[in-house]
Structures are given as C-alpha cells and as structure tokens.
Amino acid sequence: MKKVTMDDVARHSNVSKSTVSQYLNKRYDYMGVDTKRRIESAINELGYRPNFVARSLKQKRTSTIGVIIANILHSFSTKIVRAIEDVCNENDFHVIICNADDDPAKERKYINMLRSKQVDGIIVFPTGGNMELYQSMVSEKFPLIFVDRMLDELTVDTVLLDNQEAAYIAVEHFLNLGHTRIGVITSSLIHKITPRVERIEGYKKALSENGVPIKDEYIKGLKVEDMKQGLREMFTSDEPPTAILACNDLSLIEVLNYVKENGLSIPDELALIGIDDDPFANIFSPPLTTVSQPVFEMGKKAAELLLEKIKNAEREGIVQIYRFPPSLIVRRST
C-alpha cells in the first residue's frame, strides 16, 4: 500500500503543500475556516500520518522531553509527572518517563538514552551521582531542570518545596499541643538527598528555637526495609516519643504499619503528622494531619521552565531556585 504524503493531502484538499505544513504546525493565523476544514477532511479520508522524524530533522526539534524521577512509588512523583504531562500536552510535546530508583547507574543509562533519542530537554530528580554528566549538559546549554533536589556544585534551575519550613510547622504544631518527645523518620540520609536533609534541619530548628533538647535516638534516616526496626528502637527506649513526624509517604506507611502491629492508639498514645498530603490521609481512621506541598503547581512550573528553555535555547538567564510554600492540614491524628 502506497504511503500517503503531504503532497497527496495538498492535492486532495486543493491547497499548497506549505499550507498543509502550516496546518500541521497549527499556524492558523491567516487560514480560512473552509481551508482548515478541507485539509482536515483530506487527512482523515487519506489516512495521512505526519512523519515526525522528518519534521524533527527539519526543525531540529523532536517536540519530546524526558522526565527522570527518583522513585515512581512516591505519590509525590506521580503527581509531579501528571502536572508536567498536562503542560506538555497543551504545548504538543511528548513525554518519556523514566524511573531511576535513586540509582546513579540507572539514572546515567536513562540520561544517555534520552540524549540519543534527541529529546529537546530533560526534567530530573537528580540522584547526585552523575555530576560530570549534569555538568556536561549545563556546559552544552542543554535544557535541564531539577525537581525536588538541589546540587550545590551546579547552577541549574530547580523547583522544590521549602522543606525546612515543612518540618518546622509540623514540629511547631506538636509543641503547641504540649508534646516535647517528638520523633522523626525519613528515608536514608546517606546520599544527602535535599528534602530529607532539609526536613531534618527544620525539625531540629523548631526544637532548638523552643528550648527542647534534640535527641539522636528520636531521629531515624533509614532504608524502607530497615524502618520497622528503627521504629522499634525508638519506641522501646526509656522515654519513647509521644509524637512522630513522617517525612514522606513511604515512611508514613511504615509508621502506620508499626502502629497497627503494636496496637497503638492515634492520637491518644501517639500523635502523627506526615509530609505529603497522601490521598488516603483524609479517609484513614482517624484522618491524618499532614503537611501538604503544592505538587501540581510545582510540576507545572518545572514544565513551563523547561519549555521556555527549549524555545529560547541561546538566551542566557539567571539560574533560579523556585521554592514553594507548604501548608499544614490539621485533622484528627494530632
């Protein structure tokens, strides 16, 4: 079967090939309604499919971006990706999503794959383990945006939460309720991932400013598989915490599992706050107090920044860090 070409569409709709090209690129400013209708009808009747490879070679763009997320199991990641995809869809960009599992080797493989596919830009939740690769993209002025995590050694536009403030307002809420034995648990701190480190800093700052001693045994930064043991150590100490801050959704789930397995009552025996307003927080019994981050706004900002960089690739600009404010949603777990 002969492949339908743009010339075929032009002849069938009685317009020039350049007019068809303008239609396909949505440049309708000087195109009449009848012309658009004829071209659309010809495309449908002939079954024409644009050759995106040929178009990308001509335009030197693929209208495709890559998104490399740290861990697809985090609800935060899926919401961010949804917001990015919404913006890209509105701008006729395609999105390739990759899950790095916080593994620098896996992240490196995906960066190289995306670059080989000639994506126009990349949004990445950086592991921090590929500094030379990040730096090479910066040096090339390749459109690059970081989300959720900063790397001090690099000047890259970054979108993230005000993480210190997120933990600070949670601990302050505990203190206002009379709690002084406050624990905190997050994912592993070994690689100094920005939100984890900053939330611990915010926790410590709130305690210090209120004259409450900081106890190392109340602070846990662990792999998910080690959190159960870490919680056991925390709650079997001489003075177990009466309140706990779970710094992300995975640690919150581990706390809830521990509470259930050990028959603890929320909030009578343990007050609980989670950072990230997970979908189940409002329907859990009792409903969970959470610190919410404006995830969709953050994802939208990341996508808009990247598309602006792609459209103005040669323009030099000041690198900026965009921090979004958290908000405390008080329910019945505190």
Rank of each mutant, 00 (worst) to 15 (best):
E217P: 02
P213E: 11
A70P: 08
E217F: 08
A105S: 09
P240I: 10
R27A: 13
L46D: 03
R11K: 12
D102F: 03
E198L: 02
T236E: 14
F284V: 04
Q229P: 10
D277N: 15
L24M: 06
D103E: 03
P279E: 15
S265N: 09
T334G: 08
I68P: 09
V291N: 14
I266K: 05
Y203H: 02
L222H: 09
L222A: 11
L288K: 13
L245C: 14
Y168F: 11
M6W: 08
I123H: 08
C88L: 08
T78I: 04
F76A: 10
V53P: 08
Q164S: 10
N312Y: 05
R323P: 00
C247P: 07
S139C: 00
R331H: 05
Y23D: 03
M1D: 11
P241G: 13
E239I: 13
D101E: 14
L160K: 01
H74W: 02
I68E: 04
V197A: 00
F284T: 08
Q229I: 14
Q293H: 11
I275Y: 12
F284W: 13
G221H: 07
Y203T: 03
T64V: 07
E254P: 12
P50H: 08
H173Y: 12
I111H: 10
P104V: 15
L160D: 00
F76T: 11
G178Y: 06
R232P: 04
E209T: 08
H12T: 14
G299W: 03
E308A: 09
K205H: 06
D238T: 15
N71M: 03
V119F: 06
V171L: 06
S116G: 05
L46A: 06
E153W: 06
K3C: 11
S285L: 12
G274S: 15
V255G: 09
P213K: 04
R11Y: 04
V197W: 00
A303V: 13
E269H: 13
I283S: 15
E269Y: 14
H191G: 00
S285K: 12
T180P: 02
V20T: 04
A10E: 12
S139R: 04
G66M: 13
T186H: 10
I80G: 09
N130S: 10
A10N: 14
F280A: 07
A54M: 03
I190A: 08
S63H: 13
V15H: 02
T186Y: 07
M6A: 10
S139L: 01
I80A: 07
F284I: 07
P240S: 11
K204A: 02
K192Q: 01
K3W: 06
K260M: 14
D268A: 13
V119M: 06
L328G: 02
F235R: 10
N176T: 06
I266Q: 06
V87G: 10
P326W: 08
V291H: 13
E225Y: 04
